[in-house]
């Protein structure tokens, strides 16, 4: 192995894999593999070791200019420091929530924050409607205003069990436990195979072989 990889210059925001592995469901070698993925994503447009929103959009949609409400929300939640970029530590800690072994409570809480568009601590009816409209727009689906109102009303009356016009975290948790498919997208099976998809030793081995 040698010590070549540890001598490489790490980018700002880089954190040691042992630290990140201790705080997340990932092993050290999985964090190292995630660093390979991170390097790829963070250098796709601006090679500065940070994931910018356009790079995130490019990875998700193969289009750097495609705006999407939900991708924006994910980006904002990953960008814990709120400085407009995703650093490596933020990337790993946030993806940890999507690990198949991460606690369900963490996934439920993350989804709540995702849908609490205006950071009020509640999912409000207007927010739910805004998200439904965004999804319909994204999918080129057309529904009449009446039907949209009915969908939102029905869902809201099912989830807002206290009937106060907003969904709190407790109501959200009960609603998700009743409808587990709502957080299906909070689990990425890929994360269990990340060391196979992005083996972290390939590049440095190649460099050593060529020397």
């Amino acid at each position: 192995m040698g010590c070549y990889p540890s001598k490489q210059v790490k980018t700002p925001g880089y954190e040691e894999p042992t630290v990140l592995a201790a705080e997340t469901p990932f092993t050290v070698s999985e964090v190292e593999a995630l660093y390979e993925l991170f390097k790829k994503l963070s250098s796709s447009i601006i090679d500065d070791g940070l994931i910018h929103k356009e790079e995130f959009q490019l990875a998700l949609f193969k289009n750097r200019n495609k705006r999407n409400l939900f991708a924006d929300r994910i980006f904002d939640l990953f960008d814990v420091k709120r400085n407009g970029v995703i650093e490596f530590g933020e990337f790993v800690r946030s993806l940890g929530i999507f690990h198949p072994n991460a606690p369900v409570e963490d996934k439920i809480a993350f989804a709540f924050r995702l849908y609490d568009l205006r950071h009020t601590g509640f999912i409000e009816r207007e927010e739910l409607k805004e998200m439904v409209l965004a999804l319909l727009h994204e999918s080129d689906l057309i529904l009449s205003d009446d039907v949209i109102e009915q969908i939102v009303d029905k869902t809201f009356s099912d989830a807002d069990t206290k009937g106060d016009g907003k969904i709190d975290q407790e109501e959200w948790k009960a609603f998700v436990l009743k409808h587990p498919s709502l957080i299906k997208n909070m689990t990425l099976p890929y994360l269990k195979d990340i060391t196979i998809v992005f083996p972290s030793f390939v590049l440095s081995s190649e460099v050593e072989d060529s020397e």
């Binding site: 993925l37 994503l41 990875a59 998700l60 949609f61 193969k62 999407n68 409400l69 939900f70 991708a71 924006d72 929300r73 994910i74 993806l95 999507f98 995702l114 849908y115 739910l128 998200m131 439904v132 965004a134 999804l135 994204e138 999918s139 529904l143 039907v147 009915q150 969908i151 939102v152 029905k154 869902t155 809201f156 099912d158 989830a159 609603f175 409808h179 498919s181 709502l182 957080i183 299906k184 997208n185 990425l188 890929y190 990340i194 998809v197």
Partner: peptide
């Protein structure tokens, strides 16, 4: 399925913007 029986959260969870699996495509 009639639209009124759709769960709005189920609907929005299908957004491509929430499907992070595309990050892993080589």
């Amino acid at each position: 399925t009639a639209p009124v029986t759709m769960n709005a959260f189920e609907l929005i969870s299908t957004s491509q913007g929430l499907n992070l699996s595309s990050l892993f495509e080589k």
